[in-house]
């Protein structure tokens, strides 16, 4: 029972890491930018969700509002900053570094702006379902209806992404633009627009991750920083290029951490996440799940 319960808890936290990993991979694939601002975009969206909850007390309204806000913020970041930067700095080391540094700066900017608007103190809101674990006979396991909600929501988001990427013309354009933008352009794909849509999808996924994770923590301008790092670990395990890899990478990480927390030591859990990050990059930079040079959907 303990084993099973740990697995479920790991699945629940892993689902959130997967969403963040997915967001990072979407941006990386579409524009080759390592987006540190993803945590900032997600925190801004989560605060907007918090605003909705504190006004209406309705989590089910807050989630889609945050998702749309996240998508809009993502699109805005691409159009206002990344696209402009790519046009101005076309080659040389600055062309690769500048957007990454800009996202780092943007992370700081969004955090402090959010702090100015809502204050730096901790906020909290409740999940729409109880966080009290399921009970089987006389045993209560840590896995709760709230955890189940997280898993279901993440699965829905990923299923929608998977359908879009595999079955629609937009998905085809997104994949083509990620693979070889020049060839996609020549074939008539509006690569700039498609990239912005990639950023919007990423923003939406990050926002959902933020709104889902916050009831179990609390909300402050930097409360999603750890999630960003764990999202990177998940993305790296998955090979950075693959959406499926990101989803699996996040879940693998979540389950791994849950087992270390439960069976080894609380203080070792997060250091081991970073050790995994470094080891994967050292030993198999294409990711445990990534294939060489491959960029599947």
């Amino acid at each position: 029972m303990r084993l099973f319960s740990t697995l479920l808890i790991g699945l629940s936290s892993g689902a959130i890491y997967s969403l963040m990993a997915l967001a990072l991979v979407l941006v990386w694939r579409s524009t080759r930018v390592v987006n540190f601002a993803q945590a900032g975009q997600a925190i801004a969206s989560t605060y907007i969700g918090y605003l909705v909850i504190s006004r209406t007390d309705n989590y089910w309204l807050a989630l889609p509002v945050a998702l749309v806000a996240g998508a809009l913020i993502g699109a805005l970041v691409d159009v206002a900053l990344i696209r402009t930067l790519n046009k101005r700095v076309k080659s040389g080391p600055a062309a690769e570094m500048a957007p990454v540094i800009v996202t780092l700066g943007l992370l700081g900017l969004i955090r402090s702006t959010v702090g100015m608007i809502w204050g730096g103190d901790l906020k909290a809101y409740k999940a729409p379902v109880t966080n009290h674990g399921f009970t089987f006979g006389t045993t209560t396991i840590p896995f709760s209806p709230y955890n189940l909600l997280i898993v279901i929501t993440a699965v829905i988001v990923m299923a929608v992404f998977s359908i879009i990427f595999q079955k629609t013309n937009l998905g085809l354009s997104l994949r083509a633009a990620a693979f070889q933008p020049e060839i996609a352009r020549l074939a008539g794909v509006r690569v700039d627009l498609v990239r912005t849509i990639g950023w919007a999808f990423a923003g939406g996924a990050g926002a959902v991750a933020g709104v889902l994770v916050t009831p179990s923590n609390s909300l402050s301008p930097n409360s999603l920083d750890l999630l960003l790092v764990l999202g990177f670990v998940g993305a790296v395990i998955g090979g950075l290029e693959s959406l499926l890899g990101a989803a699996i990478g996040g879940v693998v990480l979540g389950i791994g951490l849950a087992f270390i927390l439960e069976y080894v030591s609380t203080s070792l859990a997060f250091p081991s996440a970073f050790i995994v990050l470094i080891l994967v990059l050292l030993i198999k930079p294409s990711g445990i799940l990534g294939k060489k040079g491959g960029r599947g959907a």
Binding site: N169, L172, S173, R175, A176, A184, A187, G188, V189
Partner: peptide, 8 residues
């Protein structure tokens, strides 16, 4: 899929 991209 490759050919469909050309039909965008």
């Amino acid at each position: 899929e490759n050919v469909m991209i050309g039909a965008t």
